[in-house]
Every structure is written in structure tokens, then in C-alpha cells.
Design a protein around this nucleic acid. Structure first.
Length: 214
DNA sequence: GCGTAGATCGTCT
DNA sequence: GACGATCTACGCT
């Protein structure tokens, strides 16, 4: 992939415009590494830096909820405007947070799998009931949503607006972007092997077995 | 460190 | 009625 990518927005700037999200989920996933999530709720504000995510492409991706062009009430947000949240419920107990990629009619999304807490650690600890190491409390997609208090009420929410915002950012100079096959999609046949999971190697916020964190 | 099993329910077939 | 973009605890190496 040598195509030119739009530059990430400034780390201290406002949220990216919808246009910034209008590109393949694989390209967007890499640029989301280092970006910052800002979650505001009654108890205060939490800021966390994205260190792991997975791209889910459109109808041709057998691991995606939009495989085969499937369009249901659950995945409706995937079909809408880029830069919104797609939040869904799995395994009868967990929520997962995605960033919608591309524009209306192209159901692609990026699953956020891991983050590092920048501020509001006490609020996250309270939500996670003390589970996890201080810098690993948002490790794993379900841990991330639990720690940031994200659930179905935020499905379709524009990430440029409070109470859940996305701010621009980028990996640090010493950080290495790595990729691997996606986790938990073994059922997807040949698509399961696509290296569409991106992460910052060595970050404590990266999930999965040790060999997939290096 | 690694592998396995159980929890638990919305969604789709 | 089957299964899932997961997590945790537990036992074994």
C-alpha cells in the first residue's frame, strides 16, 4: 500500500471532519493508532490513546458484520456516514466500539481493541472494579467499552461531539506499527488470515496472546 | 506462558 | 435454534 494518505489531524486539534474517515477501513485503522478518545460522563472525563484496532471491510469481507451486503438494524451504523460510532453487543455480555469508515453505502468499520489511559484513571478503575494493571485497564475490546462506559446508547454517535469524541494523534517516534491477522474470526475462512489488525508493538494496552503483542 | 471451558443473550437463519 | 469481532478463572507445562 503506497497510496498517499491524508495526514492525521493535529494531536491537540479538533476532531477530524467526516471526510477524514472516508477511505478504506484498513487505511483508517493505521491512522487511528495514536488518536485520542475523550469520554465525558457524569463522574468526569477520561482520555485514552488508541493502541490497537482491526479493520473490517465491506460486503466481500466474510469476517465483517456487513458480509454479503447484510444490512440489519444492528449494523445500520456501518452503512452510514464515516466518523460515527458503531456499537454492538456480543457473547451475551460485552459491548464493542467501532469507528465507521468510508461514506454512506460502504459498510466498513474499525474495531477499537485496546487503548492507554491518558487521564481519568480513577474513573476507569472504578468502572473496571480494579481489574487489570493501571496501564492495561483498556486492553481488549470489551474492557475498553467497560472502562469508558460505552454501550448501545452511543451506537451511531458522531465522534466529533461530546460525550464521546475522537481527537487526532499519531504514534510516538519510538513506537512501531505492527500488524497481524484479526482475533476471534477463525470462522471467516481465507479472510481470517488477512493482516488487518494493527497495533503499537510493545504497548501495555495491546490485547491478545504475547506473540501477537510484539 | 498456553489451552480450555463456562458465562449469557441479542441477532440472524 | 445456533452462534458469536470476548473475558475470566483455572489447571497444566
Amino acid at each position: 500500500m503506497t497510496q498517499d494518505l491524508p495526514p492525521p489531524p493535529p494531536a491537540d486539534g479538533a476532531s477530524p471532519a467526516p471526510k477524514w474517515f472516508d477511505r478504506p477501513a484498513t487505511a483508517l485503522a493505521r491512522q487511528l493508532l495514536g488518536c485520542v478518545l475523550v469520554r465525558q460522563h457524569a463522574e468526569g472525563e477520561v482520555r485514552a490513546r488508541i493502541v490497537e484496532c482491526e479493520a473490517y471491510r465491506g460486503p466481500e469481507d466474510r469476517a465483517a458484520h456487513s458480509r454479503g451486503g447484510l444490512r440489519t438494524p444492528r449494523n445500520e451504523a456501518m452503512w452510514g456516514e464515516g466518523g460515527r460510532a458503531y456499537v454492538y453487543f456480543v457473547y451475551g455480555m460485552h459491548w464493542c466500539l467501532n469507528v465507521v469508515a468510508r461514506g454512506p453505502g460502504h459498510p466498513e468499520a474499525v474495531l477499537l481493541r485496546g487503548a492507554e489511559i491518558l487521564s481519568g484513571q480513577d474513573l476507569v478503575r472504578a468502572r473496571r472494579r480494579g481489574r487489570g494493571w493501571p496501564h492495561a485497564m483498556l486492553r481488549g475490546p470489551a474492557c475498553l467499552t467497560q472502562g469508558l462506559a460505552v454501550d448501545g446508547s452511543l451506537d451511531g454517535h458522531p465522534l466529533a461531539r461530546t460525550p464521546l469524541r475522537l481527537l487526532g494523534g499519531a504514534p510516538g517516534p519510538e513506537e512501531r506499527i505492527a500488524c497481524s491477522p484479526r482475533i476471534g474470526v477463525a470462522y471467516a475462512g481465507e479472510h481470517a488470515a488477512r493482516p488487518w489488525r494493527y497495533y503499537l508493538a510493545g504497548s501495555p494496552g495491546v490485547s491478545g496472546p504475547a506473540r501477537l503483542r510484539r
